[in-house]
Amino acid sequence: MRRALPIVVVLVVLLAAIAVVNPFFLEPAGFLGFLKRAAPLVILAAGQYFVIVSGEFDLSVGSLVTAEVVIAARLIDGDESATWPVLALLIVIGLLVGLVNGVVTTKLRVPSFIVTLGMLLVLTGAVFLWTGGAPRGALSEGFRMFGRGGLGPLPWSVLILLAMGAAAIWLTRTDFGRTLIAVGDNERAAALSGVRVDRAKIFAFMLSGLAAAVAAVLLGGFAGVSAQAGQGLEFSAITAVVLGGVALGGGRGSVPAALAGAFTLEALFTLLNLYGISGALESTVQGVIIIAAVAAGAVRLPWKFTPRRGDAHAAS
């Protein structure tokens, strides 16, 4: 938790700033509303954490979210009885896309930046081709419940967020979590010490795909069918993770910090919105954060000289 401290401070400052402008934010309903809105991004950030800490990127999650929402609407087409089979199918599709990303990255040795960028384009094009720019069908009430409804005062999306967050934190404490950091820190050293690097990375990509599927269910439920449902989410997720101090290139970072990073980004957007500044500036802020965070990670002041580590992860 110590690792998450700086970002938690930033988050608290932002939340306080929101509360000053909008006192309703401090009431349970107002705060739960914020959590509900942040849930898809936080879940995506959790998935993205595993990929980034292993030294890779996943740029495909935004278009995967869009594809999942459009597929769900087309297959459910307002039919309640189709809700659960389609939900299961969405999870499978998410895992499958992650599997493909992971296998191509590790087995074919294509840089993940290219693989997932390609996947982004493939999914975007496929969605456009399939829908012709206008999604068809409709989501059932049962499907939309996850993004709209709640268990009493608690929105389902907040409960799902808690479950996903807990699972992600648990995963980092297992052997898999430690292995992943070792892989991201120094892939060759990890491989030489007997770690099955490829398997760990493929699993990380599948987690990211799973997170995208869950985020799609929440987003589709929250806002309904849209061919722009996941637009730009890949960059928001990466920004959130980087904001949480997870090093691009891998090997360093924690899930709680990544989750806090996602909440911080969402709080920042909310604050901008409250001040009547929205739209274009959001991307500017994200860009500044990514560059600043990576630059800060690269700067090493002379009096804290540490011998350079093997840079295997930087080359991959």
Partner: peptide
């Protein structure tokens, strides 16, 4: 470096 990152983010 983690602290520097946080400062830069701030």
């Amino acid at each position: 470096p983690r602290h520097k990152a946080a400062i830069a983010v701030l």
